[in-house]
């Protein structure tokens, strides 16, 4: 059981992600862009942040930079449809703890979440 912040501008994606995570019994919070995610992360101190990349009003890359600056301790797993190796490399360099491709598949997402939470 963990407190997870789901960040995605798409209602559709948040719905899929939260339904997968709720089944696992996690507590969930939602943000629709990087700026919101940053505010929530600072106040509510989640155990894990799931992060989309392409978002209006502070995208995922900018969030990773800002989170590092503000010393947000929660690990971040990037969840994106941009499956380029170079994108993955950029995210890991910016401090992401994991990188999962969309469409969200339970079998791929859960092992990464469990690994990151146990680290």
């Amino acid at each position: 059981m963990a407190l997870i912040l789901v960040t995605d501008d798409s209602f559709f994606q948040r719905k899929i992600i939260t339904s997968v995570l709720a089944e696992e019994g996690h507590d969930l919070m939602e943000a629709t862009n990087g700026r919101e995610a940053l505010l929530i992360a600072e106040r509510k101190n989640p155990d894990l942040i799931l992060l989309d990349l392409l978002m209006p009003d502070m995208d995922g890359f900018q969030f990773l930079e800002a989170a590092r600056e503000k010393k947000i301790s929660a690990p971040v797993i990037v969840l994106t449809s941009d499956i380029q190796d170079t994108t993955k490399g950029m995210c890991l360099k910016l401090g992401a703890a994991g990188f999962v491709n969309k469409p969200v598949e339970k079998e791929k997402l859960l092992p990464v979440i469990n690994r990151v939470l146990s680290e």
């Binding site: 559709f12 994106t80 941009d82 499956i83 380029q84 491709n101 969309k102």
Partner: peptide
Amino acid sequence: KEILNIGIGR
């Protein structure tokens, strides 16, 4: 939008 996004990402 999201469905298209996934296709474009690939």
